[in-house]
């Protein structure tokens, strides 16, 4: 009976949605992104969403996170998942390991999405060495389809710094939206400092 009671309380808590305001990100230098050492200098305006999905996660968008989404993962420590786990028992998320190679980052993201978002389909398309904030890392592209049946493309830059994972990813529907804002993302990613 106690279990039933706890379940009811958890469900009720989940049903009450907090109302928080989103904020404007103006052009120019900005530090402490995702409560971490990430700083960047966006060339134009973005919106920072009030809900992020994790302690060291920050989401920026132009038209809403289902249409264009930049996610900053700021120094995810070893033993931690990329996103806040919704259901640890039934859908546990993979954890960051301090000895991870940068080539493990795409798989970590894919496994996380498959578990957290129940994606119908996901594939890593390309991987290449790249710099993130002056650190050796990886640039990779991918595509996926969630339950809304919209095909989305993604591009991300990741690096391991002092055993922590830094990752910035851009995702948008394949039709129109991805191409519309990809250059803004690349400019933003290039401006990142760690």
């Amino acid at each position: 009976m106690l279990r039933v009671t706890i379940s009811i309380i958890a469900l009720l808590a989940a049903c009450s949605t907090p109302v928080l305001a989103n904020s404007l990100i103006g052009p120019g230098p900005r530090a402490g992104i995702a409560k971490s050492r990430i700083s960047a200098s966006p060339a134009g305006e973005w919106n920072k969403l009030s809900l992020s999905g994790g302690k060291n996660v920050e989401v920026w968008t132009l038209d809403g996170d289902s249409l264009n989404k930049v996610t900053f993962f700021g120094g995810i420590a070893a033993g931690q998942p990329l996103l806040r786990e919704r259901d640890k028992k039934n859908s546990p998320l993979p954890k960051v390991a301090s000895n991870m190679l940068v080539t493990d980052i795409p798989t970590l993201l894919e496994t996380t999405y498959r578990s957290q978002y129940a994606v119908n389909q996901m594939a890593i398309d390309t991987q290449a060495p790249a710099q993130l904030g002056g650190h050796a890392g990886i640039r990779f592209t991918y595509n996926f389809t969630k339950s809304d049946d919209v095909r989305r493309k993604g591009e991300a830059f990741g690096a391991m710094v002092n055993g922590q994972l830094y990752l910035v990813a851009y995702e948008a529907p394949q039709i129109y939206f991805f191409d519309k804002d990809i250059e803004k993302f690349r400019t933003l990613a290039t401006s990142i400092k760690l």
């Binding site: 989103n22 904020s23 919106n47 968008t61 132009l62 038209d63």
Partner: peptide, 16 residues
């Protein structure tokens, strides 16, 4: 969905 979430719902409107 985005229009509902970020335009019709005043408390959640995107600043831009």
């Amino acid at each position: 969905d985005s229009v509902i979430e970020y335009q019709f719902f005043p408390g959640n409107r995107l600043p831009t």
